[in-house]
Amino acid sequence: MNKTLNNGLLFVFLLLLQVFVLNNIKFSGFINPYLYIAFVFLYPLKENRFAFLFLSFLLGLCIDFFSDSGGIHAFSTLCIAYLRLFFVKIYFRKLPADYPFFNLRSEAFGKVFNYVVTLTVIHHLIYFSFINFSFQNITMVLLNTLYSSIFTLILFFSGTYIFTKSQ
């Protein structure tokens, strides 16, 4: 019960943080961090996978409601939510039996870094390609992906650093 409540609070917190704070940053005109995808990294592996996929979809859709972007956030978030297990297998070499005990904090930093960077870049690439929706400004898409990914990653790692220290 406590775990469910925790996940619910994480959902609401990330949604509000993204919509009211991070969407207004617009560093040098267009660079925004998309920290809400931390939900995908932090949601425990042992929980029901249907619930996880649906919650990621819902989180993306809620952010779409606020930022007038159709279903783009929902699409890209759901995509990394589905691919998560695949990258857990690749980077951490885990078997399905290990999933209940899997915790991002107890893993080596290098592996976690690779895992988070891959998923963030995939998410941002899908998001910016759909936002642009044409092949005209392909360099803009790539640049946006690069800058925003760096921004998101800095926020994510500093955030996890701070929260693990306080415990």
Binding site: L61, D64, G70, A74, C79
Partner: peptide, 11 residues
């Protein structure tokens, strides 16, 4: 779910 999201996007 992806098809739903795409439908929203195109609409």
């Amino acid at each position: 779910l992806e098809i739903i999201a795409l439908a929203f996007t195109f609409n």
